[in-house]
């Protein structure tokens, strides 16, 4: 598996009702880097993720995944390069059993059932959910659902992982396991979240969005430690940083 670079240049997006969700966003993420997208509600995080996932097509500006520029024609290829974990696992786990669900992506990619099966086994083992394979997704706990959703994304052999609020709804232990997993992945990782302590532990860099613009793009600890910056954008300084790295 290769991690790929992600590049966004002057990306704008307006919804049909006229709301401008993105207003000239630009950044570049190196292969294998783990980057957090932070910002208050309505800052544009979700819209940005949908563009990165090939689910929204740039009308103004551009998105590049590795060598691929996302257009209507390349959207399908872009989606194959991406593994996306959605905020609500119930939206993502729609098949009757865990194994079927994890196999959904590989089968759509045209794999034979045997290959798909191998992917399923490997992905479930990777997230420690091999024992759940024949369970129906709606009978799982929140943590199990999240693990399976992650496996479903991994089974696509993506180069880039996109995660939308991955720790929401998890109990502390489930969240801890998720953090450990995310730290180990070699993929390029982009995490949109309000969980700033997860950012500190998983990401090396944070991009702060507000009202559709990038207002800061810096090493994670530096950005999150900047109390005026955080407070100005509906965020706060994470507690774990208050003791270890007092802000100068």
């Amino acid at each position: 598996m290769n991690a790929a670079a992600v590049e966004v240049r002057e990306l704008w997006h307006a919804y049909p009702d006229g709301t401008e969700a993105l207003r000239g966003v630009s950044f570049r993420i190196a292969p294998g880097e783990a980057v957090a997208l932070v910002g208050g509600n309505g800052a544009g995080k979700s819209t940005l993720l949908l563009h990165l996932a090939g689910l929204l097509i740039p009308r103004r500006g551009e998105v590049r995944l590795g060598d691929l520029r996302v257009t209507r024609e390349t959207a399908a290829a872009a989606r194959r390069a991406i593994g996306m974990v959605f905020q609500d696992p119930d939206d993502q786990l729609f098949m009757p059993t865990v194994a079927e669900d994890v196999a959904f992506g590989p089968l759509n990619a045209g794999l034979e059932p045997d290959e798909a099966e191998a992917r399923v086994v490997a992905a479930l083992e990777r997230v420690g959910a091999a024992h759940l394979r024949d369970r129906p997704p709606y009978r799982l706990s929140a943590g199990e659902k999240r693990a399976v959703a992650l496996a479903a994304a991994l089974a696509m052999s993506p180069e880039i992982l996109l995660l939308d609020e991955p720790s929401s709804g998890l109990d502390p232990r489930g969240r801890r396991r998720l953090i450990e997993l995310l730290r180990e992945f070699p993929h390029t990782r982009i995490v949109a979240t309000h969980d700033l302590e997860l950012v500190v532990e998983v990401c090396s860099r944070a991009i702060v969005l507000d009202a559709g613009r990038v207002v800061a793009d810096a090493p994670a600890e530096e950005a999150l430690n900047d109390e005026p910056l955080m407070l100005a954008h509906a965020l706060e300084r994470p507690h774990i940083l208050r003791h270890s790295h007092p802000h100068g």
Partner: peptide, 17 residues
């Protein structure tokens, strides 16, 4: 749900194992 399906390569056909 539709978005999640698209994100995993759904092209109008639900394949099963």
């Amino acid at each position: 749900v539709h978005r999640a399906m698209l994100a995993r390569g759904y092209e109008g056909r639900v394949a099963t194992l």
